[in-house]
Computed example of a mutant assay.
Amino acid sequence: MLIAQLTDLHIGAGRRLAYRKVDTAGALEKAVAHVTAMVPRPDVVLFTGDIGDLGSRDEYALVAEILTKLTIPYFMVPGNHDRRGPLRAAFPDATPVKGTTAFVNYVVDDFPLRLIALDTLDEGRPGGVLGKAQLDWLRDVLLDGTGRDCAIFMHHPPIRTGIAHMDAQNLGAGADELAAIVSVHR
């Protein structure tokens, strides 16, 4: 199975440049063209957060417009620049949450590898968290008896990356518990 991962799009409404100089919408268009032309072709694209820069409907509308050219199935999790409600409203098929949970946690069983989306967003703060409810959810998913190989995708790194400004806002609360949960599964 081939997975393409795109992260930290930081799309601004009206094609606003990030940091007044980076054309993130243009970069996403180029990334979509590249991924679509890949041989072999990816089975799925995972967008791992910071889809928008401020989490606004206008930003997500622009992303949706650009993604109409992406003919490969895709899924998303929020990053610290996103807002759950507008993200889910704009991309219901790419955030297929079951039930009324507050988090964008879900499982995709349509591929040889089980994909587990894990929402690490602590809305309004740069760093990520995994609370008890999310960790319990993940534990239950991994113990549900399917025994399938899994890939967990999320925004905040659960480890130190060596990139100082990223390590200052990686996954804080819940990182040790996450490690304990996944260490007992293949």
Rank of each mutant, 00 (worst) to 15 (best):
M1P: 04
M1H: 14
M1I: 10
L2T: 10
I3C: 05
Q5F: 14
L6W: 09
L6V: 15
L9E: 00
L9H: 04
I11L: 11
G12W: 02
A13Y: 00
G14I: 00
R15G: 07
R16F: 02
A18F: 14
A18P: 03
Y19S: 15
Y19P: 07
V22G: 03
D23S: 07
T24P: 13
T24R: 12
G26P: 02
L28W: 02
L28C: 05
A31L: 02
A31F: 02
V32G: 00
A33N: 11
H34T: 10
H34V: 01
H34E: 14
H34P: 03
V35R: 13
T36Q: 14
A37P: 13
A37M: 13
V39A: 14
V39P: 02
P42N: 05
D43C: 06
D43Y: 01
V44L: 08
V45H: 03
V45S: 07
L46A: 07
F47R: 00
F47W: 03
T48E: 10
T48I: 12
G49M: 09
G49A: 07
G52P: 09
D53W: 10
G55R: 03
S56P: 15
R57V: 07
E59W: 05
A61D: 09
L62E: 04
L62F: 06
L62H: 04
V63C: 08
V63P: 04
A64Q: 09
I66W: 04
I66P: 08
L67R: 09
L67P: 11
L67T: 08
F75P: 01
V77P: 07
G79D: 03
D82Q: 05
D82F: 02
D82V: 03
R83N: 12
R84N: 10
G85W: 11
A89Y: 06
A89N: 13
F91W: 12
P92I: 04
P92R: 10
D93G: 14
D93C: 13
D93R: 13
A94D: 03
T95C: 12
P96G: 04
P96A: 00
V97N: 02
K98L: 11
T100M: 11
T101F: 00
A102T: 11
A102H: 07
V104M: 05
Y106K: 11
Y106F: 15
V108K: 04
D110H: 09
F111R: 08
R114T: 06
L115G: 09
L115W: 10
L115H: 10
A117H: 01
D119R: 07
D119S: 12
T120R: 06
T120D: 01
L121Q: 06
L121A: 06
D122G: 01
D122P: 02
G124F: 03
G124Q: 06
P126H: 13
P126N: 13
G127A: 11
G128K: 04
L135C: 09
L135P: 02
W137A: 04
L138K: 01
R139W: 00
R139A: 10
L142Q: 00
D144F: 12
T146S: 13
R148T: 07
I152A: 10
F153C: 12
H155T: 01
H155K: 04
P157N: 07
P158K: 07
M166L: 14
D167I: 08
Q169F: 15
N170F: 14
L171N: 05
L171P: 05
A173T: 15
G174M: 14
A175E: 12
D176F: 08
L178E: 09
A179L: 12
A180E: 14
A180F: 08
S183K: 14
R186T: 05
